[in-house]
Amino acid sequence: MSLQVEALAKRFGATRALDGLELAVREGEFLALLGGSGSGKSTLLRLVAGFEAPDAGSIRIAGRDMAGLPPAARPCAMMFQSYALFPHLSVAENIGYGLRRAGVFSQARVEELLALVGLAGFGPRRPAQLSGGQQQRVALARALARKPPLLLLDEPLAALDAGLRAQTGAELRRLQRETGTSFVMVTHDQGEALALADRIAVLADGRVAQIGPPQEVYHRPATRFVAEFLGAANILQRPGATYALRPEQLRLVDGEGLAARVTGIVFRGEGWMVECLADGGQPLRVSLPAGAIPPVLDAAVMLGWDDAALVRLGA
């Protein structure tokens, strides 16, 4: 295991940021920690990196217990959300900072890292002279310099323009594969998590609500929270059980179905999202392909689905 977290707890005043969290990250794995604000995902990263001490529980990196170790003594490296590049040092000095501290500085290694992130020749510049995307890559090279077994990434794409995000995400994925480093990436963006990660851990109230490969977490949500947080599923209450139903699994049908009225229509580029209110008072979202002709507002429609698409939810 690259990272093993057991029964981790941390409170700030009256709020429980982490509440008995368990997590295991495999070697060479890209894990996304997905959660809303206040879910404890950033706290987890700061505890693993050693900036805060846990109230209870243990953290092991590559099998070693981290209790009491300062950040400098931990084998993991962190890439900060706003990059935290040292403004008074050049790009090369930023990348070489960790190498110097470990006494393994070499100009060749710095050049190698610059080339790895596609910034060969940028060494003498200052961080302020780079674009946001370039700064992001310097931060990545700096964190990877000492070949840490585990890299913690705090919202690595959040500060980038939407257009740059997909491309940079793919670049992250490539670097993770090439270096074989375990990545633990904190994000609030489900698209990012689904696209990049080997596994996704959804955090809620200081615990892991569900962990698994993206397809599994998306299609078989374990709890109502996961179902609503990922892909905004419809929640159906049936006697004795609660089910999730993805908007894309619902269809407008001509014959038998659930009678409903259209209350809203939103065009989203890749398709339409039609908001309906079923006769029993149940709100339902239906997603239609972009080529479809959507119903008009207030129209009476019939909704249908395969019962196989219903996912039974835990508590």
């Binding site: 950040p71 403004p87 008074h88 900072y97």
Partner: peptide, 25 residues
């Protein structure tokens, strides 16, 4: 405290963080 945190994360002890990051800034 972010820059100093980053330096500590990269393996600098408290005195080195102060000398290489805090003091120049």
């Amino acid at each position: 405290p972010l820059l100093e945190d980053a330096a500590a994360d990269l393996g600098a002890n408290a005195a080195t963080v102060f000398r290489t990051i805090t003091l120049p800034l």
